[in-house]
């Protein structure tokens, strides 16, 4: 049986993100993709398109130099 992920959403701040794409390259399960939305710094924002693949390692939050990424987890009641 497949383990259910408790990560419901990965939020990328539109103002704080500077577009270094460390999160896009360093995610071990390739959750992030470069979207076509332009952020306040003038870059294409990364977007967490495949949250169902997320294994909750926290690498993106740890490596983000501008603290723009927040992993929003559910309470753990489901599954």
């Amino acid at each position: 049986m497949r383990r259910r992920s408790i990560v419901v959403k990965i939020d990328v701040d539109k103002y704080l993100c500077k577009g270094c794409y460390i999160c896009v390259d360093k995610c071990p399960t390739k959750v992030f993709e470069v979207s076509s939305v332009i952020g306040d710094y003038g870059i294409f924002l990364p977007e967490a398109r495949h949250v169902d693949r997320c294994v909750d390692c926290g690498i993106c939050e740890l490596y983000c130099p501008d603290y723009a990424i927040t992993i929003i987890r559910s309470g753990g009641n489901e599954a």
Partner: peptide, 8 residues
């Protein structure tokens, strides 16, 4: 700058 290690 974008991607600087200082922020990390």
């Amino acid at each position: 700058c974008p991607g600087c290690g200082n922020g990390i």
